[in-house]
Nucleic acid binder design. Sequence first.
DNA 1: TATCTGGAACGAAGC
DNA 2: TTGCTTCGTTCCAGA
Length: 933
Amino acid sequence: MQDTFSPSVRPNFGFGAGAGKARGLLTSLTTDMKSAEEDAYNYTPNVSLALPLGMGNPCLPTQYHTLQSSPVISVSSCHQTGYDLQNENHPVSGYYLPQGLRPNGAPALESPRIEITAYSQYPENEVEESRGEDHIIKRGVNSIVTLTLPNADGYRDPSSLSPASSVSSRSCNSDASSYESGFYNYDNSPQNSPWQSPCVSPRGSSSLLSCPHAAGPATGSPHHSPSTSPQIGAMAEEVWPAQPRGSRPNSPSCSGSGGGNTGGIGKRKYSFNGSSYHQTYCSPIQSPTPSPHGSPRVSVTDENWLANTNQYTNSAIVAAINALTTDGVVDMGEGIPIKTRKTMLDLTPSMSLKVEPGCEELGPDGELCHEDYPSHLGLKKENYGGGFLDVPQHPFSWPKPKTYLSPSLPALDWQLPSCSGPYNLQIEVQPKSHHRAHYETEGSRGAVKALSGGHPVVQLYGYMESEPLTLQLFIGTADDRLLRPHAFYQVHRITGKTVSTASHEVMQSNTKILEIPLLPENNMRAIIDCAGILKLRNSDIELRKGETDIGRKNTRVRLVFRVHINQPNDRTVSLQVASNPIECSQRSAQELPLVEKQSMNSYPATGGKMMLLSGLNFLPESKVVFVEKAQDGHHLWETEAKVDKDSIKSSTLVVEIPPYRNQRISSSVQVNFYVCNGKRKRSQYQRFTYLPPNVPIIKTEPTDEYDSLGTVGLSIHSKPFYGQPRLAPIMPVTEPDTCLVGSYPSCPPRHAVMPPSSPSSSPTLHDLSPVAYSKCLPNSPTHAAPPGTMVPPIQETPCCPSLAHPSSPDHNSSLGMLHSQGSPNHLNSPGPQGYHHSIYANSSSSSSPVSQPSTPGGPAESSFVQAYSPSQSASNSAPDGESAPSLLPEDAAPPSMAITVKQEPQELDQMYLDDVNEIIRNDLSTISVHTHA
DNA sequence: TATCTGGAACGAAGC
DNA sequence: TTGCTTCGTTCCAGA
């Protein structure tokens, strides 16, 4: 949020070219805005510049401790590497590119921004840096203004956090919060928040020297960004006026339209051409100057904002101009909705609160504040007492992990690997695919459960220290874009007798994070029985400035787990894994067909075999459609499979595998199929691989649960729902964890550290090393990949080849990965689809010089991925040994596969998501047009 | 009694 | 513009 302007971030600017460019821009901001925009949107070539973190980032080293010697204004545009790949239809290659622009997934790092560093402009004292939401306020030595062109900071209001576990928790949406709402939170985004930038090694990397900025706000804490928004998530909550339960009045929507529950007038319309959508993109909010008041954002009036079709850039520019004209002092009041202002004001006081010991306890990273920490409680009550429901502290406590020592934790929208070096974070037990989220007006609907009836389980492998760690959990998106915090859902802490796992909430960049202890005595394994999902009113979120996502039909989420491991060298390794998608709406859960398992993942092109599908909401009229798409998104083939109507049950369905359109394929071909219950009622895409006729099929052992199904004598394979395959208990399929290009040392062999099966580890692996980063990040615009490319958004390399069990059927995937470091398998991976190679402090950087490929979206990677995707996908999709890839010689697969196999980057085929994506695409294209025009 | 759940009503948006 | 459908949000009631 807010504070994103951390010194660390600056490094980006530090890049020679980038810096120079930036300066030029400054001088000609007014006139050159367009170019800036273009940069932002197109991810122009500055690839090198784009890499925020990379080696190029000089910042890292001294950033925290050293002041910059000279003011620097730089504009950098980073590329996102892999976003577009996923979009099949993006007219604009850069759809996702504008990172800053889009909260969606664009890595903050890549978003173009303008940073202004004023050295002595502000008395050190005057500069208060708040770590964004966090409460830490630091006095910055230098004031640096960072303007993120496109996005604003607020991904979501900090305020949006519902009071922890309290049932009556207030929604973030409360009026108070609205102020922030306007901004997309990119705070976390690397761009904005320095500390999060991977490249930075908090403690000392000499490399940083190169970055003048680094010194930046040394203010003591990298966390603090001068410009940071005053708001603190927690504070916001507290500030909110108490809202009677069930009353809608507070929601913006209500106020605006006086309308119905859903938000009447205020509700956004989904037409992209119209301005309505634009409204949300608002101003760049970050105030360049540290505002004592706490309002960090540069205000841009809505009118102004709206006027521009290129809101992102324009706003950014405007913000920059404002910043310049005001010397960084921005009149927050201007352009900010009354409501917002009010909130801001309210928040002001909270700033001080931020400086709470509790937060500090966690570590230098100001971002993380434990709301629940006892130490905080007192403060909260005192300060926020009125109308705020204090969340009871969790009775459990555990030794405070030292994981947060690193000031530069990655932003929540960063794509992190699930394994790195010896460590591997895995979801041993996936959550159920449906979990009805509760509104603030409702009581809790309980913790997310596992399919088996228990709860999700997460385990960290490879960690041998005695020091406990903290597992972070937040609600992430599950659409086809990069994984990022979900704007419309927050994790909700569940407490009670039935909850065995300690936890507490923390706010980071307007996203509530549940922190759960990972204890050595528990084998670094945590049962997630303390996490529910809170639904925020769409109207509340959509009305926020800068919010670009729409809530309607955007009801799918993923549980995102992170762990930060401090290394001896003071570096921090951050791992992340995301669960399978979870449908959170009541209606969807009741109406949409869901395929949870399928008896086989692959079969010869001749087809004809019966496949048993297991899931929910199957109807007599359900249809099963096999689809093959080209990389450009075009349908190459589509056919309706024969369904055995007699055997249809609500939870099982038997379908005959249709023959593939080409019976003579020489390599496996991945297609998808879905179950359709009618218009707009389709299941997600399920993967299926057609094998060359002559390929021997290896069958996996049927799982117990399906043994009886024998109707067709089929064994069911658990299927990864989204990107991640579900592991069958018996035959755990290792998801091909992909890593960013192997920059990072491969994960330890699973046998050594890992459990036999790794179900859901997210595919992420990226090299965090700075070097890798620099190389990777800058993907060429090409990355923007042709619209509609099926290539996974982010190219990941199989992260831990070793992860694949030799014994596991999945093995193939591992093979593929081995050969190609970037395997696209993440297609399935639920997790982050793009990884920031961010290991900010990662020691391993050296390990993989190669990191290049890992770059999401990097051209090279793309191609690479394509080539292997088939196999990978196959492997991914078919964990069971049947997948062709495993069978095929390593050499054999690649080339041909590239041609025949199309990978679906995202399996979100839900109509919902499609709709949303479509809208966004349209919107973007419109913007793009304007920009170029 | 409080919490969890499932179901459904209500109203607005979308078509 | 109207009517129907879809969806989000709130409310109710039972376990």
